[in-house]
Design a protein around this nucleic acid. Structure first.
Lengths: 108, 108
DNA sequence: CACTTAAATTACTATATGGTTATATAGTTG
DNA sequence: CAACTATATAACCATATAGTAATTTAAGTG
């Protein structure tokens, strides 16, 4: 059995990681990278995000260790560094499924 | 094999759920409730959050289906509605463990 | 080295949200 | 129903951050 996280530093560290995933644009990026590693230009096309915005999201994903990157000539290729993200998303999606039924009323 | 979530509504719904967990105070509340259902007064004591703030966090946790509640006389008792939260946290914590080594440099 | 393309960074704006104080509501008890 | 306690809500401020436009940096090519 695991001890639950209690100290403020751990709480904050975990919250910060959730925060990185708490953004549709970043989930979309991760989802694209799930299919295949891509350079920024490809990601612009795939996501519809503009260059500066995408770059900022990529920085954040990178500094938090969700993606890796390597330069390839003029391009920088990003790739998933942490597939466990999708385990998280799958759990979330499962919750979404159950949600539909009972949460509509609350949300209003 | 699971199809990955792609449509904007799903992305946003998943992001919104992550957002709820992307807050140390709410993680702390969930962690308290993991031990036992508690009323608001008890949670004030356990978390150190003030009444209004705690109440807002509880509303959010409730509307997103992370907690249940029932009135008990003057009190309102909150309880975990969705233990899968801790599966999420465990995955996050595992990432934290791996992180320490290589991410310190990036974070700066 | 001048020119071009890719990506990162800077500066800015707008919006969302956490915390707080004050107030309102719900339920209990006399 | 008046007084009291527990919780929820409203109003406000301060901060964080997503998006954008403009600029800079890095790398490649003539």
């Amino acid at each position: 059995m695991r001890r639950t996280p209690l100290d403020p530093d751990t709480l904050e560290a975990v919250a910060n990681r959730f925060k990185v995933l708490a953004e549709p644009a970043r989930l979309q990026i991760l989802n694209e990278l799930r299919a295949k590693p891509s350079n920024v230009t490809e990601l612009i096309a795939a996501t519809g995000l503009n260059q500066a915005n995408l770059s900022k999201h990529l920085q954040l994903l990178y500094t938090h260790g969700f993606v890796m990157r390597k330069r390839d000539g003029l391009f920088v290729v990003y790739a998933l560094a942490d597939p466990s993200v999708f385990a998280l998303c799958d759990i979330m999606c499962a919750q979404l499924g159950r949600r539909g039924t009972e949460l509509r009323k609350r949300a209003r």
